[in-house]
Design a protein around this nucleic acid. Structure first.
Lengths: 192, 192, 192, 192
DNA sequence: CATGAATGAGGTTTCATTCAT
DNA sequence: TATGAATGAAACCTCATTCAT
């Protein structure tokens, strides 16, 4: 009666762990196959190649993230509340999946053009969620009329990214979610 | 009677360009030596190994950056002005050296502990400059008393980092320094 | 239904041939892999690195030699006979495996301390066999009471080593085993 | 009024030291130039290339050895005395120049055919000295009539070689020349 | 589907040798 | 002669990927 987890998921999870901890280039296929407890060759039954693993992580995890984030703010009307929820959700996901956080944050910045192209569209959706809230805030008068949306989004994402980054590097002795309200307050003022 | 540029500088410059454009792991020694117009082996007369190149870039460039940034705000008393100058300087340096920006921003996030350790102490000085200004602002009453310094620094650095990152990835069709005042204003409000 | 020879053995044999003929430092990994008819990388599935090949040759071949030599004199009581058998066996093995002889004789003398340490303990067992026979001869009164054991062993091993060495270098136009009796006689007298 | 030692000699001495301690292949030109306190390039004013250094060591040192050894037994009539003198001289030279001993003993056995050819003729002269004494002994009836000259020479050389070898590897805590008489006695009996 | 031994292209690094000064 | 920075061929080794079982 064992509930067998599909190999695909096992490998993906292993890849996130290994790549998150060692980085894409230092993560060997053998490391991932060991972690997943499968043979090297098995990985190639589920992924076209090593890069494919990374791209898949982005696709699945960002899609999932965007869907869940969207759900979180579904039906909420208050812009401030939506912002707070998004911040909380971002930090929650990252603090619960530091390895994933590492993968997304570090590998997101591949300077390889090819790789960036493949990742950009998934990230775009992520940004859309934020930009929609910002837009919403402007329309509702919660944020100032002439707020530069891209700048605001960059501040939002860059700040959270850096907070998580510091947390990940700090060996996580403090709570990532302690500062949700403080951060919400800072953004509110900055955007006004 | 030509003024010869020292090989060390030539190689370092080439390394910044190549690593900035392809990333550390995709940058081959041969790429760097080609760019520098020297033989492969010559690089090893100036750097102990490939990692040594990366570490040296961080050491020299961050040291230089910190020194120059410090000079820029030397003698300035107004916190807001200091903040504006730092922001402008940050964006100016990065927009004039997009490859360096790439190296600093991307490779900064090497998940390898060893590498991070070697880089962290140089970055620490950079953070100190910002934190000093923030502290100064708190003492002078320009920023709110209970401002969380680390959070503020993370917002400052993360935002600029993200702005530059977006700019670098966007193929640089717009001016990185167009938003100095807007950003200064946003930080001011966020920190208050 | 062919009887496949394990790759490990194939590579070891190839390594003995190539190293025996060109010397350790002139033997390239590619030479060995070519001789073994495998890819370069395959070698590293069986040996940790190039030095590991050499050390393994010593370990396996000396172990094997010592065991077989021990068996040869098992049950023999007469010291002179044991001596003759050991001499014959030494020359027989070497004449049948001139490449191995080369490896053992030449690379044995690596001046690198590290390497010598790794090899010495295997050679020690080899020396023990000889020294036991010498000791036995002394006790039985076949050799003189005050025979200096180490000196005797050095004469035994040095002589055979040199005989083999000359033979190997001479392109082997004469029989290495022609002189077993003559040598036995010389040792007998020298040790008396 | 300083007595300048010619660079050639300085380099040769340095080469013997370095090659004797590290072996030919592990001895870098830079090691030798450092030891000799000259620039890398200077070495190439005196030697055609690295191999040339090794060959020169053999040529000069073996020539010198043979000349001196010849002188030592000049005018001596007693075969036994000549043998004793040669043994003593061999061990004396080696114990006073362990690095040279290492070079001669180890590198003598280069499996590279090319190298052996270049060295063989110098070694031939060395062997001649011994073989002459052995021949002399046979003619005088000191050694048995049917003594196999090559075998005797191989025993002589192989034994001394092995004794020196053991001594060099043993870190030289005991005197190499303690056993001159014992060895002389053993050879005498073996050759009779 | 799963395995893992085999592959071999390609990377970093070493170091003997050259040559302009 | 002496120097030592520059050279670049060549070596060892890694590791993503394949494929026969």
């Amino acid at each position: 009666m064992e509930d067998k987890i599909p190999k695909f998921d096992v490998i993906l999870k292993a890849a996130i762990k290994v790549i998150g901890q060692k980085g894409y280039h230092n993560a060997k296929i053998k490391d991932i196959s060991n972690e997943a407890d499968v043979a090297d060759g098995t990985i190639y039954n589920y992924f076209s190649n090593k890069e494919g693993i990374l791209v898949t992580i982005f696709r699945i995890k960002l899609e999932d993230y965007v869907n869940k984030a969207q759900q979180e703010i579904e039906g909420i009307d208050d812009t401030v509340e939506k912002l707070r929820i998004l911040i909380r959700y971002h930090l929650k996901v990252m603090s619960e999946n530091p390895d994933l956080a590492n993968v997304l944050q570090i590998e997101l910045r591949q300077p390889s053009k090819e790789m960036r192209m493949k990742v950009r569209k998934h990230l775009k959706n992520y940004f859309n969620v934020i930009e929609n809230v910002i837009n919403d805030g402007i329309e509702k008068g919660v944020f100032k009329k002439d707020l530069h949306i891209y700048l605001a989004r960059e501040m939002y994402f860059g700040t959270l990214d850096e907070v998580v980054s510091t947390w990940v590097f700090s060996e996580q002795h403090w709570g990532l979610m302690d500062h949700v309200d403080e951060l919400t307050g800072m953004f509110l003022k900055a955007f006004n």
